[in-house]
Design a binder for these strands. Structure first.
Lengths: 170, 170
DNA sequence: TTGGAAAGTCAACAAGACTGCCCTATCAAG
DNA sequence: CTTGATAGGGCAGTCTTGTTGACTTTCCAA
């Protein structure tokens, strides 16, 4: 409340966008958009025994094949035990392969099987279709701003990780 | 995969931002940013008996005091039973007041008590602080783009609801 | 060689979503 | 005044996904 309607000017640029009300609008937009963002893959997963967590695991294994359980843990930001349950079902069902590390045999390196890659592609394509449509509707300049704000919102560690991921082969 | 690296030009404007890889980056940005977005309120809630669901209820009751249970249901997009559990604890703990409708006595109109408003403010301020910092870092043009993309991503019904909400008194 | 640290697994529990079914109170229309 | 629809609530049970705690296997360094 304190800042509501406090509008300034700085270097000739108005700061209307920093009003509490404007920020609240952004918060709500984030909530509604994220719900839509996850809706399509969730619908596909609903039939199977899988959920959103499986999708996330498939996504990051696809993006960085051979990554270890610990790395995946760090990216997903969940506990080892939580990930393990998800990973176990994916391995049992033959979607993910877990290979013992050759240099360090404590490590498990994760890869998608053909079947796993197929599901990943299906989920990913559903999600990308919505994203692509939103990008197309909003245009390149809006997309650039979208990405800027999202990056600025991340925790510094996550942001560093995110930015370094761009180097990975897709 | 089909569209990877397919870059076009349309009216002199490049469509690099529609590459599958670019869209994947957007998807990951969305995931990481949303995690940060909910982190601060979650931390506050962690100590109490409440969770994210309580925060959402408080937010929308604050934004639209006196709304009915059914309206709140529609906004949140959850089932009656799921909301009911949350609402019951909030009412029992004296954060939310449920008033019988005067025109239609079947309806329950929801209001925050002083205590409820205080918690809402505390949660909201934590979330807004991050948002404000991100907005400030990215600048007004980026913020406009951010909002455009998020709106384009929503389901049409949600978008209509979201856009009409701007008329509500805060 | 032995002891600590790291990687991963198993078991049990909690939050919060869901469905299905049942109930009351109220309203509105025939 | 009855009857059907609507608003709200409750109970039981399930599922996903997060948590903590305790355990095994493996590695490495003193």
């Amino acid at each position: 409340m304190a800042e509501t309607m406090r509008v300034h000017t700085l270097g000739g640029e108005d700061l209307l966008f920093l009003t509490d009300e404007q920020i609240r609008r952004g918060i709500e937009a984030m909530f509604f958009a994220y719900r839509a963002f996850t809706a399509d893959p969730d619908l596909i997963l609903a039939g199977m025994d899988y959920g959103r967590a499986h999708h996330r695991a498939l996504h990051f294994i696809h993006r960085d094949p051979g990554l270890t359980v610990t790395s995946l843990l760090a990216v997903l930001g969940v506990t080892k035990q939580s990930l393990n349950r998800v990973l176990r079902t994916l391995i049992e069902d033959g979607l993910v392969e877990s290979r013992v590390g050759r240099r360090d045999r404590r490590e498990r390196h994760l890869h998608l099987t053909a079947e796993g890659a197929a599901l990943e592609r299906r989920l990913s394509e559903a999600q990308r279709a919505r994203m692509r449509q939103a990008y197309r509707a909003a245009g390149p300049q809006a997309v650039a701003g979208f990405r800027q704000v999202l990056e600025a919102m991340m925790d510094p560690d996550t942001r560093a990780q995110y930015q370094s991921m761009k180097d990975l082969p897709l």
